[in-house]
Simulated scan of single mutants.
Amino acid sequence: MGAAGGPAGIQIGELRLLGTDVADATWRELPIPGRYRWVRDLHPAAESFNVAQMYALLARDLRTGSHSVPDFDAGLRLHRLVDAVKLSADTGTRQSVS
């Protein structure tokens, strides 16, 4: 069975955005505007690009007090969700996420 996005399901390459228009249902790659690229000296296909992007945003958050990257609480919520999904799969019962 193939893994989604890469080894062990981890996405480490360049992200692509695809879209269509109403008249033509053909999927095309949409350009990602430069304002969404915070790391200029690293090619988007580099394995470390996405991590570097996150670190650049974290540095900006620390400098400016903004909140553009996930924090500890977001990580905790995600882990609780994943735990609930696993438990639901194991037991066949609906789980609530606290």
Rank of each mutant, 00 (worst) to 15 (best):
K86Q: 03
D71T: 04
K86P: 00
A56V: 02
R60I: 07
R63E: 14
Y55M: 13
D21T: 15
R63M: 11
A84E: 07
D71R: 11
G65Y: 00
A8E: 10
G6V: 09
M54A: 11
A46P: 01
D90G: 10
T26N: 08
W38V: 10
A8T: 06
L62D: 02
D41H: 05
W38S: 06
P70E: 08
V69I: 13
P31R: 15
M1V: 05
Y36N: 02
V85L: 15
T93S: 08
P7F: 00
I12G: 12
H67T: 15
S66Q: 13
E14T: 10
I10V: 11
T20I: 05
V97C: 12
A25C: 09
L58P: 00
A3V: 02
L81P: 04
L57D: 00
S48M: 04
D71M: 06
A74T: 10
G2K: 09
L62K: 02
D61Q: 11
V85C: 10
P33I: 00
T64M: 05
T64N: 10
D90P: 01
G2V: 12
R40N: 13
M54H: 10
N50G: 03
A89W: 13
A84W: 04
L87Q: 14
F49V: 04
I12W: 09
L18V: 04
L17A: 03
Q53G: 04
A3K: 08
E47G: 11
A89L: 10
V85G: 05
E29G: 00
N50V: 03
L62G: 00
G2W: 04
I12S: 14
A56P: 02
D21W: 14
L17F: 08
V22D: 13
R80V: 06
M1P: 02
D71C: 07
L78N: 07
M1A: 08
A4R: 14
A59W: 15
V22A: 13
P33Q: 01
M54I: 06
V82I: 15
V22G: 05
M1E: 03
G2P: 11
T93I: 03
G6S: 07
L58A: 06
S98M: 03
Q95T: 04
W38R: 11
A4L: 13
A8Q: 10
L18H: 03
G65N: 00
G65D: 00
A89S: 09
L30K: 02
G5C: 00
I32N: 05
V51A: 14
D41W: 02
G9C: 08
A46S: 06
D90L: 12
A46F: 00
K86Y: 06
L30E: 04
L58D: 01
A84D: 05
S66W: 06
V39M: 01
E29L: 00
A59Q: 15
E47D: 04
